[in-house]
Design a protein around this nucleic acid. Structure first.
Length: 272
DNA sequence: ATCCAGGACGCTG
DNA sequence: CAGCGTCATGGA
């Protein structure tokens, strides 16, 4: 079947793949394949609208963040011309609402790694350990990883991150309130996340921004550290201090703006 | 061969 | 609390 999802501005390739906030979507023949909730879905753009083969349109709209007014974002950073320019430069970019567990596993694997290889690791992890849903494999459940021999994870290619995955899975299976982070203040959720093995400030912020709806979370990587100096006039070497300063400067949607800055810096659209 | 990748950990000062 | 070496892996 073919369901109408919406006519809001969104560039599916940019939002689902090229922006590197999610590593599990694939593209084939102009359509995009991935998991939303428990469903394997196919999404495509057609006649200025977004369509899907999934009937759960509400879940899809939430995942794609279609109900947010992104044009207001440029106004929120209008006093930083480079940031406002980055926001206006990618009208089709959106910050996805992923399940926190998916984001947690993805960004544990992202540490000291590159996007292409993160994508390979995520897909291999899901294909070899995740539950099958149609043509797609979900992320492996915590209980699966807890009982997974580290040698098997090494064989997938996760390297030294094997124990991070297992220990974090053990914590989540043991009652870590992963699904309650969304309803906590940013700082409380952050403090909890960094207690997990393999989760530092940067990964915690990614989980919060991409998986907990914490739009103020401001992940700082090498690109963001550079572009903050150029776009926000922030000359701060310490990453945690830089993230805190950016949050204070940009407000409750600092993380959304961060995603535009990240893409602008990484693609060279903004000189850093 | 060395460097880098959406860093985190563990130890030392 | 800050600084620093180390940690797999593969592509440039």
């Amino acid at each position: 079947m073919k369901y109408f999802v919406g006519s809001e501005t969104i560039d599916l390739r940019l939002a689902l793949i090229d922006s590197a906030q999610c590593f599990s979507w694939t593209e084939a023949d102009g359509a995009f394949y991935g998991c939303v909730g428990d469903d394997a879905v196919r999404i495509w753009a057609e006649d200025g609208g977004v369509f899907s083969d999934s009937a759960n349109v509400a879940a899809l709209r939430r995942y794609l963040d279609l109900d947010r007014n992104y044009s207001a974002l440029a106004d929120e950073c209008a006093r930083f011309p480079l940031a406002a320019r980055a926001v206006k430069m990618y009208p089709g970019l959106r910050v996805l609402n992923q399940p926190p567990w998916d984001a947690l596993l993805s960004f544990i694997l992202s540490a000291n790694n590159n996007v292409a290889r993160i994508r390979v690791l995520v897909s291999k992890l899901c294909e070899s350990l995740g539950e099958r849903r149609g043509e797609i494999h979900a992320f492996p459940a915590p209980e699966i990883l807890v009982n997974c021999p580290s040698a098997r994870l090494r064989a997938i290619g996760v390297g030294y991150r094997d124990k991070y995955l297992i220990e974090t899975a053990r914590a989540v299976a043991g009652g870590f309130p992963l699904n309650e982070l969304r309803d906590m203040p940013y700082s409380d959720a952050h403090a909890l996340l960094v207690t997990l093995m393999g989760v530092g400030d940067k990964v915690a912020d990614c989980v919060q921004l991409f998986g907990c709806g914490h739009t103020e979370a401001f992940p700082v990587d090498v690109w963001i550290a550079r572009v903050c100096r150029a776009a926000l006039n922030l000359n701060i070497e310490n990453r945690r201090a830089l993230g805190r300063a950016a949050r204070e400067l940009l407000g409750k949607n600092a993380g959304l703006i961060q995603q535009f800055l990240f893409h602008a810096a990484r693609t060279g659209a903004v000189e850093v």
